[in-house]
Amino acid sequence: MSVAPILEACRAEGRAALIGYLPVGFPSVEGSIEAMKVLVDNGVDIVEIGVPYSDPVMDGPVIQDAAVRALEAGVHLGDIFSAARAVSEAGAGALVMTYWNPVLRYGVDRFAADLAAAGGAGLITPDLIPDEAHDWTAAADANDLDKVFLVAPSSTPERLTKVTAACRGFVYATAVMGVTGARASVGEAAADLVSRTRAATDLPVCVGVGVSTGDQAAEVGRYADGVIVGSALVRCLTEAPTPQEGLAALGALARELADGVRRGRA
């Protein structure tokens, strides 16, 4: 089921949606699913379920570290479907974020069918551009799945038109040039990119890369349809002395961010 209705409902409430990223399998498959439920319970509208991958070129140290530890702990691609089902049943949108090779190896059509069957909403594909996405586009269309491609501050008007035309659900705008990770300031590039993206599409535009605090969520939520937070949430888990303390920190940060998107346009 597409995340479009969730974004629509947030818009009706006069606020940006909060989208939270966690990798499946860290600290364990069960532990990661529990953590995703904590996100939902504390105001996250859409969970971005990360597939740990051996060569994550778009990710900074925090997410790389979690991915390595998840793989060492034995996570498998099939665990994604359990996570999607759990998130969906908890009442949030379940979008999977994955580099392309795991899907390719699993089989694009089979992956799309299994994801749809598990209640997943679709895919965010950081290293798959629409130009190379013929198979995925066909499979997503056949299964009514969202196709979330990325745009960047470097994107030209031609690329913005091409990429947004291929998206369904929303458009993922990377706020800064660089890998994932918290930034002291999200900067003006994000607002500029959102405005240039809106010139190319009527789809919701959500902003990721660099957001870590409630204040930043409020700031970005003023002009974006959704605020995507990754590394800051992951760090709650990777730096916690115990899993319970990790979940507590995670819940607290999710509440702060949820409050941020609610006061952004107040």
């Binding site: 070129v57 778009m58 392309w100 950081p126 290293d127 798959l128 551009i129 130009d131 190379e132 491609f149 990325l150 745009v151 960047a152 501050p153 470097s154 994107s155 030209t156 690329r159 990429v163 990377t174 040039m177």
Partner: peptide
């Protein structure tokens, strides 16, 4: 072959 990279690199 092809181009399996983040969109940010496409203009370059």
């Amino acid at each position: 072959g092809g181009r399996y990279v983040p969109e940010a690199l496409i203009p370059a």
